[in-house]
Design a protein around this nucleic acid. Structure first.
Lengths: 331, 331
DNA sequence: CATGGTAATGCAACCGCTTGCATAATTAGA
DNA sequence: TCTAATTATGCAAGCGGTTGCATTACCATG
């Protein structure tokens, strides 16, 4: 049987409460007593039971990370998992554990309730999709941070996101700087959430008089190829595509090459998100880089601030950078 | 304040232990009493406190997943995160939570000790890298499963892995079937762990008289290109490359195309692991597909079996499949 | 109708730790 | 040297459940 605080206390010749005090570093304890207690703990290979600790103190030493069930799909995976690693990193440094749960309902109650009310985590990281007024009310002033900007129904939430608008503008400006003139947005389907913001950035960065051209792809790379090619057929054909994601860019690139369009000569291509393989296409893809590690890190930091004093309520946008590669190197 | 079991008991006019019994579904309770209790729970929006439950019952209702700190790197990410999602899925279905921790030491003790001895998880999923005799001894008959085959120092461990040997053989056989004759293995660096097994499968599947050709790449795509090209220069040049991973394949493909080698005409290419983008290269990559979701699922299932009755000790190899695409379509 | 047996519920100790309050020990000030 | 103010430690009551044992209620049987 594992040693308990009582065993340690007995061996050290003190009261369990004293052991508890040295454990928590609160209150004052004689150096000698402290030494004895440490010795006893070492001798018994004592590990404080964090379950008991949680129950007694009301603090669980754990945070919950809710994952949008839909993010389990291939392309969101890496995006999310890098953030998750970063979150765990920060949590570990703070002495916290990370409990994950997908947002699908769980035995009747939602993951959020489950983590908050049953598992008693000290804070929550939520995906934007779950942030609805009803949820916000339920959460109340419980410490939470949304990883990603919620849509308008999530007003008042505390979140961290990447600046999609700025990222799109960055791409458009780069296109112009490289001499491209007619820039289309490829993959503007279901314009909610981050796509909406990217589109906004795209539109606002277009030169005056330039009409926005938003192409739907249906989310598949084949669709991207088709959409890009048919746009090129039309009058007023674009000479650059800002792609909503890597798959879109891959699909478009493949389609363009098949029809012998020169990239970057005739047509420029930029992908949102910088997937590891974007560097190895032919030509390598210029990409709007999102630092997902930092995204996770910032989110976790903010959460811990909120755990410490609930007052904090901040919305953070993280800047993106442009990784310039061959697919836009026209000069 | 959240309602406790006592509040429910009082409202339902029964003893807390009776409430506990309906909660756990053990022992018999009058339908009427049960109904009253459910009503009281609903009225009070009662959520059993799982911390208190854990303390009293000795069961935490959580499993720990230890992540190799090194797996945080870009390419392992997706591989791992799909497994993780699957694990969470299974755990959720079983009413368990998933706590993640990276394998870096944590406040003195290892993640394993931390999760097992402090956080009191009911079971552990470990990465092969942590499985050393010392660890095994510490874990003892505590329920755990290794996600991935440990090397020889981890004898006796209970694990689930993909059959790397079979996967490599599958690829070699496919090459032969497509008329390739001299098959090289590209990316056989640091031949430990899974690479070693892939190499073994590669060697054993080579036709008699065929000499194995294992090329080192240094892990970079540039290295892959260089290694592939220089092998092609030599006498007895290979006409097919089995690539250790997607990046290697991407690098090689790019190098080959740059030097005007026809793929699949002159040279065939197969990548281990089927990354989502492998489908969108030019030509699309034939790949050995590893079902990482199933890997996670099987691992979790096995863990729960071990949690229920410790006797189970099984080593599982999951078969791979070959996704045939253009990069080997010679006929 | 008494009796034995089972089903339903209550009682109270306990899981391992925290913490407010009481007490004992120490130090300082006059 | 005596008293007051600190400081170090002990005591015991929780935290919110679970569970073995005791008790009561109920039913069937002889």
């Amino acid at each position: 049987m594992a040693a308990t605080i009582h065993d340690v206390a007995k061996l050290a010749g003190v009261n369990p409460s004293t052991v508890s005090r040295v454990l928590n570093g609160k209150a004052s304890v004689t150096p000698e007593t402290r030494r004895n207690i440490y010795a006893a703990m070492a001798q018994l290979d004592y590990h404080p039971n964090s379950v008991a600790r949680s129950l007694a103190s009301g603090l669980s030493g754990a945070i919950g990370v809710v994952v949008d069930a839909r993010d389990a799909d291939a392309f969101s995976n890496e995006y999310f998992s890098r953030s998750l690693f970063a979150i765990e990193q920060v949590a570990q440094a703070m002495g916290y554990h990370v409990i994950i749960a997908n947002s699908a309902s769980r035995a009747g109650s939602s993951s959020v309730e489950d983590l908050m009310l049953q598992r008693k985590v000290d804070g929550l990281i939520l995906p934007p999709s779950t942030v609805k007024p009803a949820l916000l009310k339920k959460v109340g002033d419980f410490p939470y941070v949304v990883l990603g900007q919620p849509d308008t129904t999530g007003q008042g939430a505390c979140w961290v996101d990447v600046n999609n608008e700025q990222g799109a503008a960055l791409a458009v400006e780069h296109f112009y700087a490289q001499g491209y003139r007619h820039i289309a947005y490829l993959g503007g389907d279901q314009p909610d959430g981050f796509v909406k913001r990217r589109l906004k950035g795209y539109r606002s960065a277009l030169h005056a008089g330039e009409a926005p051209l938003v192409l739907m792809t249906g989310g598949t790379p084949e669709g991207a190829a088709t959409a890009a090619l048919s746009a090129l057929q039309g009058s007023c054909a674009p000479d650059a595509f800002l792609c909503n994601d890597n798959v879109t860019a891959f699909g478009a690139l493949k389609g363009l090459k098949a029809k012998a369009f020169a990239v970057p000569g005739q047509v420029g291509l930029i992908a949102f998100d910088n997937y590891p393989l974007a560097e190895y296409t032919d030509p390598p893809l210029t990409a709007v880089n999102v630092d997902t590690s930092m995204l996770g890190e910032e989110t976790a930091r903010l959460l811990f601030q909120r755990i410490e004093r609930r007052a904090v309520n901040r919305q953070t946008l993280l800047g993106t950078t442009l990784i310039e590669r061959e697919s836009t190197r026209r000069m």
